[in-house]
Design a protein around this nucleic acid. Structure first.
Lengths: 212, 212, 212, 212
DNA sequence: GATGAATGAGCATTCATTCAT
DNA sequence: CATGAATGAATGCTCATTCAT
């Protein structure tokens, strides 16, 4: 099973946003190299010593920038999560109608996952851990912030008679379920084609699934 | 976040199949009580001491029946996986056409998850761990065995012009992606209604997503 | 480093003496296969499970014949020790004078070690363990029994003016030290030629070392 | 059986060479107290808890300085081995002829063993373990370095007609066998007189054993 | 006599975290 | 700000021994 590798520079750009400038260099170095550590062995199993060796930073520096190992994971998670949110927001912002919103959401999602596969894998890996830990409330807040505008746009679609009257709690699963499922399988090495290759088909199927 | 609790007797029946009779009693006790341990803290973080205390068995007995902690997780995983496979096979066996196959698959899935939520949560939790560990090949074999008949039925549907000509690697995501996504959210306490409540809608949406 | 291998049948004969007949078969099987286990990993590190697997006997049988693991080691040690004593006694019995006693002792020693290298290695390996354990007194008694007649013969040699007047506690080291040293090195794979190849030279050197 | 006790300060000096200065204090403390632990029960049977308690260091510190228990044993072994080598090299360096080399070697050996009996006992105890473990090659290298100059001096003696033409692989056993044998017996409490008491006799006997 | 499942004390080792320099 | 030696609680696992069958 060959797992996809993303571009280092793209990742660097994401982390630059999270810890900008000269000052943030050592912090970025830790996050950058923590990613493969966490992905390879899991958050629990990765050790501070792993992070120290790969990042070239000292133990003290890691603890200076992050409270503890969980703090490293959370910082990395939110750096990825926020970049993903930004990508989704940008794409969906100017979609003219509900179907275009769905298409934009799916497209933004698969493009982001295809561009940053390691970070995407980490988001799947860390999500439950983060949700149950001390940053769970923060995650819930940011999820709400990400999806509220989209939910509003889809609600419009329902009122306009374009989207079927479905239980609200079912919509997210119907819209992104297939896309997420394919992305997970690709990230795990169980699918060949990049998610972007199927963006159109995934968006169409999602739309047909909820269309009136 | 209230997480769903399943019936103990239903779980007992599943484990009885895996380790039958008087002889298997201590083995079953370990598996039965390992489930909440693993679900609460994760496989890595759960300790043998946790398993020992909850199951009332000795450390030696755990290691006698299972090679190591990973062995306990694998045994539990395959007990659940196989029961899920059996449920799917039973339901889909006598479906008259492709659409009925999709409906039966979705129904079997949501019913199984709703009946055994803790075991279902564990299957999601353990899947990647199992896939990457020494039982990965075994899992791949059993996945193939589970889905081969269903793939064949859907291929019929494509030939009959009922299902669109889609890339084969996309189909599983389109058929079960939404269902899995909803089940994950429900198991995590982020959705109220049991998956069974939406079985029909999930099946319809899935079918519209792949229909010609 | 290739370590020398002895003949199985020769070993079988030694153990047959220790546990004779049909009745002693399972006991012999344990001792026979315990030898390579102990030699390979050391007495402490060898496990009952090792002995069980190689010997084909059950755990219960091992504990039935020997009180515990130490008991297996002790039984094997004394089986070897006693056979070695017998070989030495036979050879030295009819030596006409002190020099012949020394030659016979060295010859008996190197021949026994060359014929039963694994057992010889075990005697070196186990000696200190046995000497310090509950069988220490027994070992001291049997050592006394082995060397008393030889010491008497050498004392004659001193009185006859053939052997120098040396401190009694020095004699054993001078007589067998070189031989033992070579045998240890050969058993450890650090020497090529069988000890028997140097029997004459070792005996001559030993004699010159103590001769008046 | 009273076992000989050496002077603590002499041992301290040896270990000071191995881990010098203020920085090496905790490392030295571990080695110093590991010696009686290993000698009393054997390397395998001695526990890290023993070492921790006697040395007053923490478990973490032991593992920080040495990779594992085997690493403690190896460090102690080589500290002793190297000091012994140095003592031998010093003594034999300015011996005028082959007989003087033999006498110097025996003298250096018995003096070192008499001065550091616990360390000497440990060298006998650990030798096979070290030889078979990951430091076996290192030991072979250092043995070669220790004995190469002495072998060269003895080879001169053979050419000069002072030493008999004996198989090369026999010489070490003839020269040091008796000495080693006596030292082992003394260290085990089976002999009273310090090896130094017999240095002259041991050297004479060794020389007569190999003289032309 | 023979068996092997069950036991649980005991062990080597790891690793997140601290804090003096 | 940076460092990395020191800490020791916690963990997975082993294995000699027992005993009911």
């Amino acid at each position: 099973m060959k797992r996809p590798r993303g571009s280092t520079s793209r990742l660097a750009a994401v982390l630059e946003l999270a810890s900008p400038g000269e000052r943030g260099a050592s912090r970025r170095a830790v996050l950058m190299h923590a990613l493969p550590c966490f992905n390879a062995r899991g958050i629990e199993a990765a050790t501070i010593e792993d992070l120290r060796q790969r990042s070239g930073q000292s133990v003290g520096t890691i603890y200076h920038h992050f409270r503890n190992k969980e703090g490293v994971a959370a910082a990395l998670f939110f750096a990825g999560f926020d970049d993903q949110s930004r990508a989704i927001a940008e794409r969906t912002a100017d979609a003219p109608d509900a179907q275009a919103v769905v298409a934009a959401l799916v497209a933004a999602y698969v493009e982001w996952v295809s561009a940053l596969p390691e970070l995407a894998a980490f988001l799947f890996l860390a999500r439950e851990t983060i949700a149950q830990g001390p940053y769970g409330a923060e995650l819930a807040r940011r999820l709400e912030a990400r999806y509220a505008p989209i939910d509003a746009r889809l609600a419009e679609g329902v009122r306009a008679g374009l989207i079927a009257e479905l239980p609200a709690e079912l919509i997210p699963a119907l819209v992104l379920g297939g896309t997420e499922s394919y992305c997970r399988a690709w990230l795990a090495g169980r699918r060949r084609a990049r998610p972007t290759a199927h963006a159109g088909l995934l968006a169409e199927a999602a739309w047909r699934g909820i269309a009136a």
